[in-house]
Design a protein around this nucleic acid. Structure first.
Length: 418
DNA sequence: TCTGGGGTCCTAGGACCC
DNA sequence: TCTGGGGTCCTAGGACCC
């Protein structure tokens, strides 16, 4: 037997901003999505004020002003780097560690250790090393650890074990919808059957759960009962699909401007594909207007290559053709994207019988490699495909208030005055 | 005026095969 | 009028997560 520990950064993006702006320690903070579209992270004050995750910014702007909140644009570079720092810090506590998301890590430790003390140590050390507050939850399965961390958060204890639920007391007060793995739809289904709380859930017969929620829901159920169904995934698996999509800074009506944006998506996706050493058999391209505007439209087209590829120009060429057949004049497009799927390791690919690898392919592959190396060293976009530039580049995102890249750019280092 | 982006797994149903 | 049975593979869509 062993314990799973979940370390979860509190209000992660908002906390990252606060680390470098100690003057904002007590100021409400909101962080917006790409294009400053909606609120995706909130400091505790903003949560307490009732501003919801995912709320459209234009709808809550006044309320945020009233709160005196500081509002930041999305600063992925900063958050990703802070996330790495937390991960590095956590490595000292166990070699069995999984980075579950940008703000969460699972650790596995043997039950010989005093897990309660360890959890406290983790919390203290992460804060010392990074200035980021974290919650720590533990249990004998991942789901138990996750629920415990949820409890730690809501009860403001910061550290909690699943046994703290003392099912007869607290289990009665936890809504089924708060269970990790039970989403909105399943919550409705369960409540219709009178299963309304965590305690109801774990005392329901197994086959009922299986019938209502199928395999994934059954796993959640077993995990809550202490039967592990998910192990740690310490080694990041290569992606099975790669999506790159983005809303435009402003609406676009012209095909060539949309292609510029789409080209950007393709360059990014192909870059990530090559980075994991894979090639893709299929590419799906999509464009759409805002679903909230009238008239609206959305279309997608998929192409399957006879030989899988990671070559940006080849993908671009195919995408251009697809776009031509999808684009309809007269619509105000708001977003484009590309999905690469049926992904296999590049080394595993057989040459196509009738299209053996040509000298041209080798040359272009070498070129891609060079471009990637330069962009890694000097920053994304140092070398770009010419089709991503367009005399009208209003498709590019709008960010009103992005904070400095304090930790990754010499020019943007914080300055300390004594 | 203004509503994110990136993933995974599972199931049902159709196509197809013998 | 009567119209098999069993299997695999693929895809679209649903549900979940952060």
């Amino acid at each position: 037997m062993q314990y799973y520990i979940l370390v979860d950064c509190n209000n992660f993006f908002a906390s990252c901003e606060r680390v470098f702006r100690p003057d904002l320690r007590t100021t409400p903070i909101a962080v917006l999505s790409n294009n400053d579209g909606c609120v995706i992270a909130r400091s505790q004050e903003v949560k307490d004020a009732g501003i919801k995750m995912g709320a459209p910014y234009f709808k809550v702007k006044d309320e945020l002003n009233r709160l005196g909140a500081e509002v930041f644009s999305f600063n992925f570079t900063l958050y990703a780097d802070m996330s790495d720092r937390v991960f590095e810090c956590l490595k000292q506590f166990s070699p069995d560690i999984e980075k579950y998301s940008i703000d969460e890590c699972f650790l596995k430790v043997s039950d010989k250790e005093d897990v309660a003390t360890l959890a406290e140590d983790i919390r203290r050390e992460v804060f010392r090393a990074t200035s980021l507050p974290v919650g720590v939850g533990y249990g004998v399965t991942k789901t138990q650890a996750k629920m415990a961390s949820h409890y730690a958060k809501t009860s403001k204890r910061y550290v909690a074990g699943f046994s703290d639920y003392r099912m007869n007391f607290i289990g009665d007060m936890i809504d089924v919808g708060e269970i990790w793995g039970v989403g909105r739809r399943h919550t409705k289904t369960l409540k219709r059957r009178g299963i309304a709380t965590l305690k109801d859930f774990v005392t329901t017969p197994e086959d009922t759960i299986k019938k209502l929620l199928h395999t994934p829901g059954l796993r959640t159920y077993l995990e809550l009962k202490g039967i592990p169904c998910y192990d740690l995934e310490s080694i990041p698996q290569p992606k099975k699909s790669i999506l790159s999509s983005r809303s435009f800074g402003t609406r676009q009506t012209k095909q060539d401007a949309i292609f510029a944006a789409l080209s950007h998506n393709i360059c990014r996706a192909a870059e990530r594909l090559r980075k994991q050493g894979s090639v893709a058999y299929t590419m799906t391209v999509f464009i759409r207007t805002s679903p909230f505007s009238t008239p609206n439209t959305s279309s997608s087209k998929t192409i399957t290559f006879s030989t899988p590829t990671d070559i940006t120009p080849d993908l671009l060429k195919a995408a251009k053709k697809l776009l031509k057949t999808m684009y309809k004049p007269g619509y105000e497009y708001a977003k484009s994207g590309v999905l690469l799927s049926v992904i296999v390791p590049a080394a595993q690919v057989q040459d196509h019988l009738f299209a053996p690898k040509s000298e041209r392919d080798d040359a272009v592959s070498a070129l891609m490699k060079t471009v990637d190396t330069i962009n890694t060293k000097w920053g994304r976009g140092t070398i770009d495909m010419s089709c991503t530039t367009h005399e009208n580049d209003t498709w590019k995102r709008i960010q009103g208030n992005v904070s400095p890249r304090y930790t990754t750019s010499w020019q943007e280092l914080p300055v300390v005055r004594i």
